[in-house]
Write a protein that binds this DNA or RNA. Structure first.
Length: 934
RNA sequence: GGGGCGGUGGCGGAACGGUAGACGCCGGGGACUUAAAAUCCUCUGUCCGCAAGGACGUGCGGGUUCGAAUCCCGCCCGCCCCACCA
C-alpha cells in the first residue's frame, strides 16, 4: 500500500522547489514562439477571495498548457495599489495608506503563491511605487505634449460639511449623501484635467482585429454611442441661431416646439422678463432633480415655456421654446427640435403640456382607425361600410372602423363614404398616417399648426366636451382605440412635409439632409456619447499629476527629467477624507521649472484607471530605469522585451471591466502607437471573461449574508490542486454559478483515485494482453489527449476535468486486466499525468517523480495524439425508422454503405417495425446511422 | 425602452443538425466493518409494464429536415449592461 494522498504535505514542498529552481522565470528566447497570457491584476484589499481564484486559476491552467505546447509563456502578476480604501483605512485605523497597502500586498502575495500558479514574480509590478508611477506621470506629460491633455471646469460631487470632493462610491443612497457625515452632496465646478479619448472614437469602434466576447464588444459600442443624423439651424425670433442635433431630419416638418437643456447658454438671454423667476426656479430644481431621480425610469416630464419662439427653417412655422431636464446639455447641442408625432419623449411632453402634434411620417403598414360617434352620421352608414368590407366594432357611444393598410385605396374609399354620410353638425375623424377630419363641407388634415388650430376650434364649436382639450391630439387621446395610432417612431414615407412630401422612408433621412445642406440650414452630423476622460481625482492616494502653476508662466508641466513628482509619505489624511496634498506645505510649494519663481503644484492625482491602462507594458521590465532621468523620447519599458512579448495574446478577467478599463487600455495603446512606442493597434488580441461564483444559496457572496467561501480554508482542507480542479469543473467558466460544498468533495475523491491508480500495484494477469485490449487502451489515451487539448484551446475548462475523470475511470477498469504493466499502460499513465499537470500541478509532479520520471513534469512537452490510434474500430450504428431510434448495431468502422443498410434491414427489431410497410428511403451517415423512412 | 447572455433530470452541467442527460453532486441498494467514517460495487429523466418492450421528454407555439436541445419565425421567463443620448 502506498502512503495516502496528503496534499498539504506535497504542495508546499513543490512550490518551494519550483521557486528555488526559478521554474517559471520567463526569459526572452528567440528560438521559441512567445505567448503573453495576462490575467487582471487585483486591488490589494488584503484578502484574496474565491472570485480572484476563479479568474486566475483557470487562466494559469491555460498558461501552463501553452508552456507545455512549446510556447515561451509570460504570465505576470502585480497589484493595482492606488485607491480610496487605503485612505479610508488610514482614517479608520490611523495607519498610513502606504503601510496598509504594502502589508496587504505581502499577505495577498502569499495567498497567490498558495495557488501554485506559474506567475513570474520577478516581474511583479506595484502601481503605487515611485518606480511605477514615474511612468504613469510620464504618460501624462506625453499626452500633454501631444495635445491630448487639457484642463477645463467640470462638476464634482462635493460634501459641504467635510469640505471635500467625493468619489462616486462615497455618495450614498437615493438622497445622495456623504458616506462619512450624511450631509446631502452638492455639485461643485472645479478645474480638472481631461484626456482626449474622443480623438480615437472611430478607431475604438473597430473590433475587426481582435477576438473579444460579443457582449464586451456590444457594451463598448453602446458606451461610445454613435448616432448619425444632422445638425439643423433654427433661428430665434430675434435672429440668434439655435442649432439642434437630430437623427430624424425627415421629421422636421412635424416640429411643434423646441426644448433646451436648462443649462443651455442661450436660456438666460432668451427668457422673457415675466418668465425669468420661474425659469431660475426650474433651473435650480433641474440641477437637483437630475441627480436625485436619475434611476427612475418612468419619470414624469417636467418643463417650462420661457416666453420665446423660434422659426422652423423648413416651413417658417413659429414654435415655442421650452426648457426641460430631459434634454441634456452634455449631448448633441443641448437643444432639440420636438416632434411629438414621432418621438415618445416629445409625445409625452406634448400631451402633458398641451402642445400640438402634427404627423409627418406615414405609417409603414398604412392602417388607420376611425371612431364614428352615435348620431354623427346618417342612417345606412354602417350598412354601407359592411358592404364595402370595412370591419367595425360596436361601442356604447358609437363604433370603431378599422381601415386596413393592405389595399391602397381603402382610406380614400372610407373618406368618400364618410363624407357622404356625415351630418352637417358633426364630423368623423380618421387617424392613421395622416389625421383627417371629415366634415360635411370638406376634409381637413392635421398638417400644419394653422390647420390644427382650425380643426380644434371647429370641433369645440360642434362638441362642447372638446372645449376641455388644448390640442387635437389631446382630443383624440380621449378615445382609447386611437392611442396606438397617435405616435410612431418608424421610418415611412414623408407626409405633410412641403416639397419633400412623398419621399420614401428608406431615403427620407438622406434626402432631407441633402435638401437642408443645399439651403444652408443643416448638415450631416455624427454624435457620440463618449466624452473625454476626466483623470483628475481630488485624492491623496494616487499618482500626482505632474503640473505646476506659476503666477508668471501659468500652467507649466513638470520636465521629464524631474519625474517622478513624489507622493509625500509623511502626509496626514484629514478625518474628513479631504485631499492631504492640499495641506502638505512641502509638496505644495515648489519653483517654476520655466522661470524659477515661486509656484504651486497641482494637488489632484490621477484616476487609478490610468495606472491599470498600461500595466501590461510595465510587466515587461518593472520600474524600468528607476533612478535614471527620463526624457520625452524615453520608452517606459525595455524595448527588447516589448518587441518579443507584445502584444498580450490572451487576456482574462471579469466582465465588470468591459467598458472603462478595457476602453482606456485600448486608448492608451493607440496613443502609444502614435508615439511610436508600439507597432500594433490593440493591446490584447484575445479576451475571455469568467463568470461570478455565488454563495451556496445562489446569492452574491458577502460578509453580511455570511455566505463567503474563503479560499485559504479550502486550500487547508483539500489542497490547492482540488480547489483549482473544482473551479474548472463546477461550472461553465464564462457563466459561473453557486458554490457547492459537496461538489468539491467529488473532485477531491477523484484526485485520491488518481493517486491510488498510479501508485497502487494492479493485478497483473498471467496471460499477455490481447491486441484488442491494447488497442482499446491506446484509443482511450489518444482520444483523451484530443479532447483535453481541444477543450483547453477553447477555454472549456469544465470538460477538461470531466474528460480526465472519464479517462481515470477507464484506467481503473483496465488496471484489473492483462493490459496492466504493458507499454500501453505506461503510456496511459504518463499521458494522464501530463494532461493533469496544468490543472493540478502538484499532484502531477509528485506522481511523475515518484514513478521515476525526470523532474519537472512542467518542463515536458504536451502529448500529441495519434488520430489512427484514436479512431474506433467497432462503432455503434444507430438505426432510425422515421427519425426514431429502433436499433443499435455493433459494426466495423469501415463498413460499406451497402453492408450497413443490409445489416440494418436484417436486424430483427427493424424487421418487426417495417413489417407490412413500404421502405421509401434510406439515409446513410457513415459511422453514425442508418435512417429508414417508411 | 435599447443591447447582450441564458432556459436541458432533484442540482452543477455534457452533447460537429445524427444514440439527449457524458462527468460530478445528491439519493436508493449492496460489499467491507463489532459499529461508524473512508473506500469499493451497483442503480438512478418521467410514465406504462413482471419482463421483453413501449410512450413521453431539452421554457411555449409554429416551420425547415429522413432526423432539431442544436437552424429559422413568433412568444414567455430569468440574469447582466446601458438608459430621457434627441
Amino acid at each position: 500500500m502506498p502512503d495516502p494522498y496528503i496534499p498539504q504535505q506535497i504542495e508546499p514542498k513543490w512550490q518551494k522547489r519550483w521557486e528555488e529552481d526559478r521554474l517559471y522565470r520567463s526569459v526572452i528566447d528567440p528560438n521559441k514562439p512567445k505567448h503573453y497570457a495576462l490575467t487582471m491584476l487585483p486591488y490589494p484589499s488584503g484578502d484574496l477571495h474565491i472570485g480572484h481564484w476563479y479568474a486566475m486559476a483557470p487562466s494559469d491552467v491555460r498558461a501552463r498548457y501553452m508552456r507545455m505546447r512549446g510556447y515561451n509563456v509570460l504570465f505576470p502578476m502585480g497589484f493595482d495599489a492606488f485607491g480610496l480604501p487605503a485612505e479610508n483605512a488610514a482614517i479608520e485605523r490611523g495607519i498610513h495608506p502606504y503601510q496598509w497597502t504594502m502589508a496587504n500586498i505581502e499577505k495577498m502575495r502569499r495567498q497567490l503563491k498558495s495557488m501554485g500558479a506559474m506567475f513570474d514574480w520577478e516581474r511583479e509590478a506595484i502601481t503605487c511605487l515611485p518606480g511605477y508611477y514615474r511612468w504613469t506621470q510620464w504618460f501624462f506629460r506625453k499626452m500633454y505634449d501631444m495635445g491630448l491633455a487639457y484642463r477645463k471646469r467640470a462638476p464634482v460631487d462635493f460634501c459641504p460639511k467635510c469640505n471635500t470632493t467625493l468619489a462616486r462610491e462615497q455618495v450614498w443612497g437615493p438622497d445622495r449623501v456623504c458616506e462619512r457625515c450624511g450631509t446631502p452632496v452638492i455639485k461643485k465646478e472645479l478645474e480638472q484635467w481631461f484626456w482626449r479619448i474622443t480623438a480615437y472614437t472611430e478607431e475604438l469602434l473597430d473590433f475587426s482585429r481582435i477576438d473579444w466576447p460579443e457582449r464586451v464588444v456590444a457594451m463598448q459600442i453602446n458606451w461610445v454611442g454613435k448616432s448619425i443624423g444632422a445638425n439643423v439651424t433654427f433661428r430665434t425670433e430675434r435672429g440668434d441661431p439655435l442649432v439642434v442635433f437630430t437623427t430624424r431630419p425627415d421629421t422636421l416638418w412635424g416640429t411643434t416646439f423646441m426644448v433646451l437643456a436648462p443649462e443651455h447658454p442661450l436660456v438666460d438671454e432668451l427668457t422673457a422678463p415675466e418668465y425669468r423667476e420661474a425659469v431660475e426656479e426650474y433651473k435650480y430644481f433641474a440641477a437637483r432633480q437630475s441627480e436625485i431621480d436619475r434611476l427612475s425610469t418612468e419619470k414624469e416630464k417636467t418643463g417650462l415655456f420661457i416666453g420665446a419662439y423660434a422659426i422652423n427653417p423648413v416651413n417658417d412655422e413659429r414654435i415655442p421654446i421650452w426648457i426641460s431636464d430631459y434634454v441634456l446639455m452634455t449631448y448633441g447641442t443641448g437643444a432639440i427640435m420636438a416632434v411629438p408625432a414621432h418621438d415618445d419623449r416629445d409625445f409625452a411632453f406634448a400631451l402633458k403640456f398641451g402642445l400640438p402634434v402634427i404627423p409627418v411620417i406615414d405609417r409603414p403598414d398604412g392602417a388607420a382607425r376611425s371612431f364614428v360617434r352615435t348620431g354623427s352620421v346618417r342612417e345606412g352608414f354602417a350598412e354601407a361600410l359592411a358592404e364595402a368590407g370595412f370591419p367595425t366594432e360596436a361601442r356604447n357611444d358609437g363604433f370603431y372602423v378599422s381601415i386596413p393598410g393592405t389595399q391602397a385605396d381603402s382610406l380614400h374609399h372610407y373618406i368618400a363614404l364618410a363624407r357622404e354620410y356625415v351630418r352637417p353638425e358633426a364630423w368623423v375623424e380618421v387617424v392613421g398616417g395622416p389625421w383627417l377630419f371629415v366634415f360635411a363641407d370638406g376634409v381637413l388634415s392635421v398638417d400644419s399648426l394653422e390647420n390644427e388650430r382650425r380643426i380644434l376650434e371647429r370641433c369645440q364649436q360642434l362638441d362642447p366636451t372638446a372645449r376641455e382639450c388644448r390640442t387635437v391630439a389631446e382630443m383624440l387621446w380621449r378615445i382609447r382605440s386611437y392611442r396606438g395610432f397617435l405616435f410612431h417612431a418608424e421610418y415611412g414615407p414623408m407626409i405633410n412635409s412641403g416639397p419633400l412630401t412623398g419621399t420614401p422612408g428608406d431615403v427620407a433621412v438622406q434626402k432631407t439632409t441633402e435638401w437642408l445642406a443645399e439651403r444652408g440650414v443643416g448638415e450631416f452630423t455624427v454624435n457620440y456619447k463618449l466624452r473625454d476622460w476626466c483623470i483628475s481625482r481630488q485624492r491623496y492616494w494616487g499618482a500626482p499629476i505632474p503640473i505646476v502653476y506659476c503666477d508668471r508662466c501659468g500652467i507649466v508641466p513638470v520636465p521629464y527629467e524631474d519625474l517622478p513628482v513624489m507622493l509625500p509619505t509623511d502626509a496626514v489624511i484629514p478625518p474628513t477624507g479631504e485631499n492631504a496634498l492640499k495641506y502638505h506645505e512641502g509638496f505644495l510649494h515648489t519653483t517654476c521649472p520655466q522661470c524659477g519663481g515661486p509656484a504651486t503644484r497641482e494637488t489632484d492625482t490621477m484616476d487609478t484607471f490610468v495606472c491599470s491602462s498600461w500595466y501590461q507594458y510595465a510587466y515587461l521590465s518593472p520600474y524600468y530605469k528607476e533612478g535614471e532621468p527620463a526624457h520625452a523620447d524615453s520608452i517606459p519599458f525595455d524595448p527588447e522585451e516589448g518587441k518579443y512579448w507584445l502584444p498580450v495574446d490572451v487576456y482574462t478577467g471579469g466582465i465588470e471591466h468591459a467598458t472603462m478599463h478595457l476602453i482606456y487600455t485600448r486608448f492608451f495603446t493607440k496613443v502609444m502607437r502614435d508615439m511610436g512606442l508600439v507597432d500594433f493597434d490593440e493591446p490584447m488580441t484575445v479576451l475571455r471573461n469568467q463568470g461570478i461564483i455565488l454563495g451556496e444559496d445562489g446569492e452574491k457572496m458577502s460578509k453580511s449574508r455570511g455566505n463567503v467561501v474563503a479560499p485559504d480554508d479550502l486550500v487547508e482542507r483539500y489542497g490547492t490542486d482540488t480547489v483549482r480542479a473544482y473551479l474548472m469543473f463546477g461550472w461553465r467558466w464564462s457563466q459561473g454559478g453557486p458554490w457547492d460544498s459537496m461538489g468539491i468533495e467529488g473532485v477531491y475523491r477523484w484526485l485520491h483515485r488518481v493517486w491510488n491508480l498510479v501508485l497502487e500495484p494492479g493485478s497483473a494477469g498471467f496471460q499477455p494482453a490481447s491486441p484488442k485490449e491494447i488497442a482499446d487502451l491506446r484509443r482511450w489515451t489518444h482520444r483523451t489527449i484530443q479532447r483535453v487539448t481541444e477543450d483547453l484551446e477553447n477555454f472549456n475548462f469544465n470538460t477538461v476535468v470531466s474528460g480526465l475523470m472519464e479517462f481515470t475511470n477507464a484506467l481503473q477498469k483496465a488496471k484489473e486486466t492483462a493490459v496492466y504493466g504493458t507499454e500501453a499502460w505506461e503510456e496511459a499513465i504518463e499521458t494522464l499525468l501530463l494532461l493533469l499537470a496544468p490543472c493540478c500541478p502538484h499532484i502531477a509532479e509528485e506522481l511523475w517523480v515518484r514513478t521515476g520520471r525526470p523532474y519537472s513534469i512542467h518542463q515536458q512537452p504536451w502529448p500529441e495524439y495519434n488520430p489512427e490510434l484514436a479512431a474506433e474500430e467497432i462503432i455503434t450504428l444507430v438505426v432510425q425508422i422515421n427519425g426514431k431510434v429502433r436499433a443499435r448495431l455493433e459494426v466495423p468502422a469501415d463498413i460499406t454503405e451497402e453492408a450497413a443498410k443490409e445489416a440494418a434491414l436484417a436486424d430483427p427489431a427493424i424487421q418487426r417495425h417495417i413489417a407490412g410497410k413500404k421502405v421509401r428511403k434510406i439515409v446513410y451517415v457513415p459511422g453514425r446511422l442508418v435512417s429508414i423512412v417508411v
